[in-house]
């Protein structure tokens, strides 16, 4: 169906190592699946008889639902494991979980975990493809791909766009994956946030511009990605409080005016309205936030399709 001549890795842990052709192929596949979502009958038989296990060790209703809808629209069977519902709560280790999942002989595993590296840990130990749905502060590749997709649809390209990413870069897996994806596709990326929310070595490691105030990042931007702030955990530690954060880093109409007039606003959600951005910006026509939800299903369908039908998939048991 798509891109027959590309070789795909067994797992999708992050966007590192994927070429422009790979990223474009995913976006093209997502475009086709997005079209499926607009049909009256939204289901295709592509993965009939396949089992997709959704293992959510950390709560995330949005991402889990998005994957579940994606798998079901491809006609796959799904099985949800969550930490509270499974034996994880009874002190089972990640290694035990891996072995138990392997015993179900799934055709794909989608994992969300609070620890960086958990997806790669399972990928190295399971025969089936592992799709990272977010691991600690490490990576959230499907979110990044849907961001790329949501940008490319209206803009027609990624290359040459100026993208501002504002907020808590240090703790953001979305930011890390976007830095890699946008970088690979040739966008010019500027990040901004309080220094306590930036990591040292950011420009060295990712080749991006780094600012401590949002204005220079926003100036002339074609796309603005606002990151979520963990108000309960970070207030008082990394910044004095929500009020000050909103004033300095929050996206208001005035700050938005620094960007291109047709600049797009994205946010991985859920948005703290009045903190990361004002309600006016959130509800403005420039905001793609609800679009991102629809696109998320299409991108995840594309990824499941590409990985589960991957002829490169090893057949031997690793665990």
């Amino acid at each position: 169906m798509f891109s027959e001549n590309l070789t795909w890795p067994k797992d999708l842990i992050d966007l590192r190592g994927l070429s422009v052709a790979h990223l474009m192929a995913i976006l093209d596949a997502a475009e086709s699946f997005r079209e499926v979502s607009e049909r009256e009958i939204k289901k295709v038989p592509t993965l009939r008889g396949k089992l997709v296990v959704l293992f959510f060790h950390e709560n995330s209703t949005r991402t889990r639902l998005s994957f579940e809808v994606a798998a079901k629209r491809l006609s796959a069977d799904t099985l949800s494991l969550s930490s509270s519902g499974s034996s994880m709560a009874k002190g089972e280790t990640l290694l035990d979980t891996a072995k138990n999942i392997e015993a179900m002989a799934p055709d794909a595993l989608v994992i969300r975990h609070s620890a960086a590296g958990a997806a790669s840990f399972l990928g190295q130990r399971l025969r089936c493809p592992v799709l990272n749905a977010g691991d600690g502060a490490h990576a959230h590749p499907t979110q990044a791909r849907l961001d790329l997709f949501s940008i490319r649809r209206p803009k027609g390209r990624i290359e040459g766009l100026k993208v501002a990413i504002i907020g808590d870069i240090a703790h953001s897996r979305v930011a890390r994956s976007n830095l890699i994806g946008l970088g690979t596709l040739g966008a010019r990326v500027a990040v901004a946030g309080p220094p306590s929310m930036l990591v040292r070595s950011l420009s060295e490691e990712y080749g991006v511009e780094v600012y401590h105030r949002p204005e220079p990042a926003l100036e002339g931007a074609d796309v603005i990605i606002m990151l979520r702030i963990q108000l309960e955990r970070q207030s008082g530690q990394l910044f004095p409080g929500a009020r000050e954060y909103a004033r300095v880093y929050g996206l208001s109409q005035a700050k938005l005016a620094l960007a291109q007039p047709d600049a797009l606003v994205l946010h991985p959600g859920p948005v703290n309205q009045g903190v990361e951005m004002t309600p006016e910006v959130y509800h403005s026509p420039q905001s793609l936030i609800l679009d991102q939800v629809t696109n998320g299903v299409a991108v995840r369908m594309a990824l499941l399709y590409l990985l589960v039908d991957n002829p490169e998939r090893p057949k031997s048991l690793v665990v």
Binding site: G117, D135, A139, V199
Partner: peptide, 11 residues
């Protein structure tokens, strides 16, 4: 160590 690897791995 805090540095490039920690920035890369999100640790």
């Amino acid at each position: 160590i805090e540095g490039r690897m920690s920035a890369r791995l999100g640790l």
